[in-house]
């Protein structure tokens, strides 16, 4: 049997979460099909056709499913499900919206947010906000799965050559009307879902100095976070707090600046893929979990980082 991956896209471009999901799928079975449903989505199909590991693309191009509402996407999946042993989607707000719905209609359970594949029916997933890791086995004939994207490397965007199959379905009308979609107003990505987070702590010494982080955040398209100590000291608002009592984040890159690494803070970011710590105190506990530690005065290091990033960008150009 084959694995069906539901592509996340906005009818214009493919979201990177799809690449991580395909990686997870490839650990289950090599025959991977990608479902691209939407409207006027040729460009997305184009991008997807060269993805490493994808054998076939199922393209559904229908105005009725332009906004990919859960009621519609689940109908599509149910229609296709008999051909697949596994159906995967990223564990984003996109995948989490329709996957349980599709599973339930077929009287199947669903496995959320897997972070590892042990075998085709056994998976690893974090529970209790990552404070415990469960190994779970699915007893259902078809496995409906959402994938924690930060746990799987993205597949290469070139090297594959998928066949494209256009499908059409008679989708039922639904009791939901799409009104609008607003991209987040802030130019910065949302803290909870940003690919890069740069956080400041007490070491920044005051609220004004938090602006030193902005420049780097702009260059990395990062969200700005803070330790509880910095929030308590009034340097920055509550909404930026990362930690046990703040937001839990798991970006690909987490940069902790002037944060000692109180365990309350670590609890909120230890799931990050790469952690960088910059602190002048080499005894700071944050170094104990950082992939890359830099012992430095942050007031010198931050401008340097900014400069180095410019250099990188120049080279790229």
């Amino acid at each position: 049997m084959s694995v069906l991956v539901v592509a996340e896209h906005n009818n214009v471009s493919l979201k990177s979460s799809t690449l991580n999901t395909i990686q997870a799928a490839s650990q289950i079975d090599k025959d991977i099909h990608l479902l691209v449903c939407g409207f006027q989505n040729d460009e997305v199909v184009n991008q997807a056709s060269t993805l490493e590991g994808v054998n076939k693309i199922l393209q559904l191009n229908d105005e009725i499913i332009q906004h990919q509402l859960a009621e519609h996407v689940s109908q599509v999946i149910i229609n296709l499900s008999k051909n697949y042993s596994h159906i995967l989607a990223p564990s984003s707000t996109f995948g989490k919206n329709f996957m349980p719905r599709a599973a339930a209609i077929l009287d199947h359970s669903q496995i959320s947010d897997i972070s590892g594949v042990i075998s085709p029916d056994t998976f690893i997933r974090p529970i209790y906000a990552g404070n415990a890791i469960a190994t779970v086995q699915s007893l259902d004939p078809v496995k409906f799965i959402t994938v924690r994207t930060t746990s799987f490397e993205p597949v290469e965007i070139v090297g594959g050559s998928a066949s494209i199959e256009k499908i059409s379905l008679n989708l039922e009308g639904i009791a939901t009307k799409f009104l609008d979609r607003k991209e987040a107003k802030s130019e910065r990505p949302e803290l909870g879902s940003a690919r890069v987070v740069i956080s400041g702590g007490r070491g920044l010494e005051n609220g004004d100095n938090f602006k030193l982080l902005n420049e780097i955040a702009d260059k990395l398209n990062a969200a700005i976070g803070a330790s509880r100590a910095a929030v308590d000291a009034g340097y920055i608002g509550n909404e930026c707090q990362v930690g046990q009592t703040g937001k839990m984040v798991a970006p690909e890159l987490y940069i902790a600046v002037g944060i000692s690494g109180a365990i309350q803070h670590l609890a909120g970011m230890k799931e990050s893929k790469i952690i960088v710590a910059i602190n002048k105190d080499e005894e700071a506990p944050i170094f104990g979990i950082a992939d890359y530690g830099l012992k430095a005065d942050l007031f010198q290091a931050l401008p340097e980082i900014s400069k180095e990033l410019d250099l990188l960008n120049d080279i790229a150009k």
């Binding site: 199947h108 359970s109 496995i111 056994t122 974090p126 529970i127 990552g130 404070n131 415990a132 890791i133 469960a134 190994t135 779970v136 086995q137 699915s138 007893l139 259902d140 230890k270 952690i275 960088v276 170094f287 104990g288 979990i289 950082a290 992939d291 890359y292 530690g293 830099l294 012992k295 430095a296 290091a301 340097e304 980082i305 180095e308």
Partner: peptide, 25 residues
């Protein structure tokens, strides 16, 4: 329909390397 085979503590994150300067980082 989903069996919890075991529940474990998350692996303890190990510290990585110290870099000498911003350039290396």
């Amino acid at each position: 329909k989903v069996k919890y085979l075991k529940v474990e503590e998350p692996p303890v994150r190990q510290g990585g390397v110290m870099v000498a300067d911003v350039k290396e980082l």
